[in-house]
Each structure stands twice: as structure tokens, then as C-alpha cells.
Computed example of a mutant assay.
Amino acid sequence: MIPYGKQDINQSDIDAVVEVLQSDWLTQGPKVPAFEKAVCEASGANYAVAVNSATSALHIACLALGVGEGDVVWTSPITFVASANCALYCGAQVDFVDVDPVTGNMCAVALEAKLNIAQSQGKLPKVVIPVHLCGHSCDMEAISRLAREFGFKLIEDASHGIGGSYQGKRIGSCAFSDITVFSFHPVKIVTSAEGGMALTNSSELAEKMALLRSHGITKAAALMTRPTEGDWYYEQQQLGFNYRMTDLQAALGLSQMARLETFVQTRNELADTYRDALAQVSASVVEPLSDSHSAWHLMMVRLDVSAQRRQLFDAMRRSGIQVQVHYFPVYLQPYYQSNYQFQEGYCPQAEQFYQSILTLPLHCHLTDASVQFIVSQLKALMDSTANTDGGH
């Protein structure tokens, strides 16, 4: 089976993890801050807070920005559920902004229209979370302009985006947002086995998130409310969480960061191969914005409306190619429909986008030959489906 995503682990990665296993530190040691520093240097942000998942990073990012009961957070419906769930964890409400039908990313025009309505009703969002689907940046200049105009905070869900850039600024630099979140899940660009990171240029936000990731506890003398009683003394100042990343995970992530540029270059080269191969197929690549450089986490294509996606999906899987679909609109998930009364048709562009998309394999173990094979199988199956449909 050719997987849709796969980690790239080399001997240097293994050696880095073994080194930690043989050290005095397994959980909270020197590798975590070293990993944070490496990601800051690669992205251009001033501060980074490593945690055990991107979901945790989204949660503490919302809390650091003051999201709580009575607040509303908006995000994209075409994303993993964590982009929305993080608001609910804070006791806030969540709502969705329709997507651009071409990119599948949050549509700035739809966002502005929704903001104007919300302003007239006195229900503006506290935070908006655009999602960089596939590693393709959203139109952050337009979204950032709206944030300044309407007074909301921005969290970039860049779980797919490390190594990419927009308008010459690296994703993660927080040039257009308050906080950016990365994921290091095994299928992502860089992996720490499991993990995430929240980046910001605000020392205050970084301090809040660092406190929240570890039970709300601090040992920093400058933050104490009472004089320290000794090296053993600590204070719990907030109700925080056990969201810490271990040194084992950080060692793997730090080792992987040395190959970030190679990973992204390889993915871009494979995307070019896909683009050329798909020119003769009734499927179009979901492309990044022209003023951006994508990390190409996912190779997502839009199928011709006549194609039978379920038939293609099943047939591709039978042929040994693990295609996937990213993502079922979050508000149509049973939990959201039963608890928040979202209905079909709420974000029509998102629903149409979802109905047409298919994710093809994309990872650094693929070769040009494997891409040609995947596309040839897709074309043959699409031709077969079209011929079968034509016979009825």
C-alpha cells in the first residue's frame, strides 16, 4: 500500500532519540527549549511553546488570548475538528466561515460579510482561526486587515504549514497573527512522533502559554506571589494542563528540523510532477496562492463533477494506493449537529468543495515513478467509471 502520508526517519533521528534515552533527562530536559529555538529560527517568531499536540497548542492559544464563556471563535469548516473544539474547551461558542471554492481556505470576502452582520448584531468574534489547508497559506493580508478593523485576535492553524511562506514571510513568523500553531504528528512535514508548538512575538502570550502547558505551575522567582522557600518551591497560579512535550519527542523534532528545507523542496518537486501528470486527467490540483510558497503537506485534487468519488476511492484503495479525503465539514459532524443545531447548507462552498476533493499520496518516500503510477491508476479508473456511466 502506498500511504497518503509517511514520516521520514533516518539514522540521525534515531541517534538523537537514543542519546536522550541514555541521558539523565527523558521528560523535561534541554532538548525541549532547543527544539523551540530551532523552530523560532526557522519561522522567524520570537517565542515558541512546545506541547504534546497541536490540539493542546490551539487550546492554550485560545486561553492565552482570553477566550472564555460568552465569547465566540470562528474558524474554517474544512479542517480537522481540533480547530473548532479548542474554542469549546474554553467554554466559548464556535462558528464557521465559508471557504474560497478554489483553495478550500477561509474566504476573506465571506469573512468580511459575516463580520458586518455580526457587528450589527453585537456578536463579533473574540478570535478567528484561519487554517492553512494542505500547507497553502490563507490570504492572511486580507484577514489581518479585517482583524484590525473589527478588533478580533488571530490564531493561524498552520498544522500543515511549517516550512511554507506567504508574501515572502515565513509561516510561523506571526507577521499577520497573534499566535501560530504547528503540528508534529507523524504524517506532517516534520515529526516529533506526536507534538505541537505555539509561536508568538508577544512575551506576555508566550509566558501565559508556558504556564498553561504545565498545570499553571511556575518556579520562576520573578512570577512568585510569595518569597521562594527554596529550590523545591513552586506555585500553581492558574488551572493549567499537563500538555508538556518530552525530551524524547523534542530530540526527534530537533533532528528533523535539520532537514526541513529538504522536506519542503522534495514535496514541492513532487507537487510539480503531480501537476504535469494530472494535466491529462479530469482532476485539478488544489493550488496555493500565487504570492505564497506552500509546504505541500497534502496533495489535494478536485475531481470532475461527473466522477464517482466513492467508486474511485474504493478502487484506488484496492489497487494499493491509500487515497484519503480531507475534510468532512466540521459543523456536519454529529456532535455539532446535535449540540449546536448546524444544518446542511450552512457553508455551501465548503460542502461543494468537500464533495469534489480527493487526497493523493504525498511524502518524501515517493518517487516520480510512483507519482506517475498513482496518476495512471486514477486516470484509468476515471475513464472506466465514465465509460460505465455512459452505458446506462
Rank of each mutant, 00 (worst) to 15 (best):
V190F: 06
R148Q: 03
F96D: 06
L65P: 09
G29I: 04
T218C: 13
A64C: 08
L270E: 06
P334L: 05
F342V: 03
Q119W: 01
S338D: 13
Q236M: 05
G230I: 05
Q237P: 03
D24V: 01
A38M: 09
T200G: 14
G151E: 11
Q341R: 15
S338T: 14
M316N: 02
V305F: 11
A279R: 15
D389K: 13
K153Y: 12
Y166P: 08
L212G: 06
N242K: 05
F353C: 00
A45Y: 09
C174G: 07
V190K: 06
S43H: 07
C364M: 00
N201C: 11
Q324M: 09
N10M: 09
C107K: 01
F152D: 05
S120I: 06
G164F: 06
F313T: 00
V305L: 14
R267C: 12
P130S: 01
Q236Y: 02
E41P: 00
P30R: 01
G195F: 04
S120H: 09
D71N: 13
R148M: 01
L378R: 00
L199H: 15
D139P: 02
L332F: 08
L211A: 04
Q377V: 01
L63N: 14
F80I: 01
L26K: 09
A350G: 10
I60S: 12
E351F: 07
V128R: 07
T246R: 08
K188L: 09
D247C: 04
G44Q: 14
Q236P: 03
G253V: 05
S214D: 15
Q311T: 12
D314F: 03
R302C: 10
L212S: 09
V94I: 10
V20F: 01
K208L: 07
T218Q: 12
E156W: 09
F35C: 11
F263K: 04
D100M: 00
A258G: 07
L211Y: 05
F342Q: 07
A386C: 03
Y234F: 15
L254D: 11
A210F: 08
V99R: 01
L211W: 09
T359L: 08
Y166W: 15
L303P: 01
Q337S: 05
L298T: 05
S23L: 05
H326P: 00
L360E: 09
G195A: 01
R226K: 11
V127M: 15
A42M: 02
S83M: 02
H293I: 05
V94Q: 06
Q119C: 02
G253N: 07
L88R: 11
L65R: 10
Y89W: 12
A108F: 14
Q265P: 00
A198N: 14
N52R: 13
T266A: 03
Y327Q: 07
L260T: 07
K208P: 06
H297V: 00
L146D: 06
L211V: 04
